[in-house]
Design a protein around this nucleic acid. Structure first.
Length: 655
RNA sequence: GGUCUCAUAGCUCAGCUGGAUAGAGCAACAGAUUUCUAAUCUGUCGGUCUCAGGUUCGAAUCCUGAUGAGAUCACCA
């Protein structure tokens, strides 16, 4: 974490900046802007807490950096009461604040109940996250999404926003019909109760079944195509497309033959292209399977409001929702408002009409409606089919409008994977071109995919890491580890259960949230998530340890008094770090990054552990010193608790 | 092919609106508990910050190019 910016805008540092401006003016008769005062955190190996970079002033001082630094340092020491000393290393002026300054900070700010409680900024922000499909259970990728969304919402709330958490459930469409059809055909009236399976997993089972049965039907079609050149399975519209793909594949294969064996790069490229075209053929062939056609028919029935289809859809979605509710509860995430695509999928058409009238969109000969974004470096994009039906982006245009009409929020954040970067670029641009005043408040929180060592998770290869399984694994690991360490003495079954859950989820959540959201994340199922080092349990343990000391000492914040005037190094470092919490929250909010909080809380825990090791608390030399160290400990526990809370992670009183 | 993202220690990651000798954790090795919880602490080992140019007093950080990895370019969602 880079705290330079933070120091610049941290209110308590303003007086230093002002003093530097004044110093340069008086010493060198030159006016400099406050934003040109380059303050940063002093590196560990030097004395001091704040460092002024003095290279920029050598021009106006016409002296070497060391001498310039010395002069400014002398001036600051004389004129700023809080600065007790300084040292100069090359172009760096390291400033030491008096211990009294830091002690005041602890007592007058950090220890108070309203520390890091932001004043409301009277802005409203919506965070849409999770947004699952109702045909499959959630997996590790969804966990990342859910934790990110929930945490970002917590952080924004702590930063002063009014937050609305929403979930746009993708509850309709061809993928749901696949599960429905497979259940209808092969299910034998199986229910979550009769099968003793969670509802979402049961529905997922039929989705998988559909795919595998459909694949069986695909084989003869494909072998007819490739072995006999028989295209009779396709419609007249599809035939020429397939024909074109096949001849392209043949051409590419010729090229492969002509390419020398040692040119592996060219061969790989060619083979990738062949595979891509073969995939396209396969996609078209899928639509020719009997099961796919039945599923399509079912979708049409659903859209027509066919009573029987709707009934089945409601039953199966009900199973899924019950399953999701359980998973959400385990994850500790929640929502203020649910939107369902079954209600919103027809939205957006009137907005398209608007855009057509205003000339933002144009109609092609076949009646389909498009927008031309080539001037913005993007492509042409279809927004309404020739038959007047919606596509994905049409719905999103409509849903964006609906959300704004519902809440009139200043900002709206979509927590969606980076595979949809292009989609959101287009969506936001369209809304802007439509003249929506709120379009500038839209933000795509694009996060990286969760990959396995083998690459992407693939359901077909059974490498999908199921959310419920993973959480159960974490619980078990937490339980085993804790028991092994003999830390469960005197705990009731209920307390143990709660503790294992807290630790297991803490490890998992921290593991996923400590990484910058936009980066892809590697998860190795073979290596269990660590409980030591830079981990959730490490921080939880630190908290438990603080709490243990506080209770053993019978610490009472109301009555505790102390008159210590000087600080040890570890104590001072800890206070300096704690004082940065409010600004860290603002920074995390501005960058939409829980990782900022995660790394900060880790620093706090690490610093506390160092302090704890070096300084006796109960056996401190004086009662006053003991009380001071307890106050510092209590403040640390509070920051850890609150910081972890922003990540959706609980901290135990003992572990 | 066009566009976008990423590349830092053996591994997983910080650091990136330009500043000091690039930091953690894991792994490996060596230590610390008569004292508040050893899920801890201390130390050792480990780096051409992918490469090549450029801007600058100063570049892991900014710019250009190359290489490698991923995503995307559907009348799917």
């Amino acid at each position: 974490m880079d705290y330079r910016l933070l120091l610049l805008i941290l209110p308590p540092m303003e007086f230093i900046i002002e003093a530097v401006v004044k110093a340069v003016k008086e010493l060198y008769q030159t006016d400099i802007a406050a934003k040109d005062v380059n303050l940063q955190e002093t590196r560990k190996e030097f004395e001091g807490q704040v460092t002024l970079v003095t290279f920029p002033y050598t021009k106006v001082s016409r002296k070497g950096p060391e001498q310039t630094g010395g002069e400014i340092g002398e001036y600051l020491k004389e004129n700023v009461a809080e600065i007790s000393g300084f040292n100069v290393v090359k172009g760096f002026l390291n400033l030491s604040f008096s211990d009294g300054f830091w002690l005041d900070k602890l007592k007058g700010e950090i220890a108070l109940d309203d520390f890091a409680v932001a004043v409301p900024n009277s802005k409203k922000v919506m965070v849409e996250y999770s947004s699952p499909n109702t045909n499959k259970p959630l997996h590790l990728g969804h966990i990342r999404n859910n934790l990110l969304g929930f945490s970002v919402a917590q952080i924004l709330d702590a930063a002063g926003y009014e937050v609305i958490k929403t979930n746009l459930v993708n509850d309709r469409g061809i993928h749901i019909c696949k599960s429905m059809l497979a259940w209808q055909r092969f299910g034998n009236d199986e229910t979550p109760e009769s099968a003793a399976i969670k509802g979402d997993h049961l529905v997922g089972k039929y989705y998988v079944m559909f795919e595998s049965k459909m694949r069986e039907q695909l084989k003869p079609i494909l072998s007819a195509v490739y072995d006999d050149g028989d295209l009779s399975a396709f419609t007249d519209i599809q035939k020429p497309k397939v024909q074109a793909l096949l001849s392209n594949i043949a051409k590419l294969k010729d090229l492969v033959v002509q390419t020398p064996d040692n040119n592996t790069k060219a061969l790989n490229d060619l083979n990738a292209k062949i595979a891509a075209d073969e995939d396209k053929v396969k996609e078209i062939a899928k639509t020719a399977t009997e099961l796919m056609q039945q599923a399509q028919q079912m979708l049409q029935k659903w859209e027509a409001g066919d009573a029987e289809t709707i009934k089945l859809w409601e039953i199966m979605n009900g199973w899924v929702y019950a399953g999701f509710a359980e998973t959400y509860k385990s994850l500790g995430v929640a929502f203020d408002k649910f939107y369902y695509e079954s209600n919103t999928y027809l939205l957006g058409k009137d907005t398209v009409e608007e855009g057509l009238a205003s000339g933002v969109f144009f109609k092609k000969e076949d009646g389909s409606v498009w927008i031309d974004l080539t001037a913005d470096g993007l492509d042409q994009k279809l927004v309404l089919r020739a038959d007047g039906t919606s596509v994905y982006i049409t719905q999103d245009i409509g849903t964006a409008q609906l959300k704004y009409d519902d809440f009139k929020m200043d900002e709206s954040i979509y927590v969606v994977g980076n595979e949809q970067d292009y989609h959101f670029k287009v969506l936001f641009l369209i809304l802007e071109k439509l003249g929506k005043s709120w379009a500038k408040g839209l933000y795509h929180l694009s996060y990286g995919m969760v990959d396995l060592p083998s690459g992407k998770m693939k359901s077909r290869e059974g490498t999908v890491v199921d959310a419920d399984d993973l959480m159960a694994d974490m619980y078990k690991t937490a339980a085993d580890t804790t028991e092994e360490m003999g830390k469960v003495e005197g705990l009731s079954e209920e307390e143990k259960d709660k503790l294992f859950r807290t630790i297991g989820m803490g490890a998992l959540k921290y593991f996923l949230l400590k990484v910058d959201p936009k980066k892809r994340l590697l998860f190795d199922p073979k290596e269990s998530i660590d409980f030591q080092g830079h981990t959730g349990p490490f921080i939880q343990y630190t908290h438990a340890r603080v709490k243990s000391v506080l209770s053993k000492a019978g610490y009472n914040a109301e009555t505790s008094t102390s008159d210590v005037e000087t600080l040890g190094a570890a104590e001072r470092d800890l206070i300096v770090l704690l004082s940065k919490f409010p600004q860290t929250i603002q920074d995390a909010a501005a960058t939409h990054s829980p990782a900022v909080i995660a790394n900060y809380v880790y620093e706090v825990a690490k610093n506390y552990n160092k302090f704890y090791h070096e300084n006796p608390i109960m056996q401190a030399e004086t009662e006053s010193l003991k009380q001071f160290r307890l106050q510092l400990s209590a403040a640390t526990a509070k920051v850890i608790n609150k910081g972890m809370g922003l990540l959706g992670i609980d901290v135990p009183e003992r572990m």
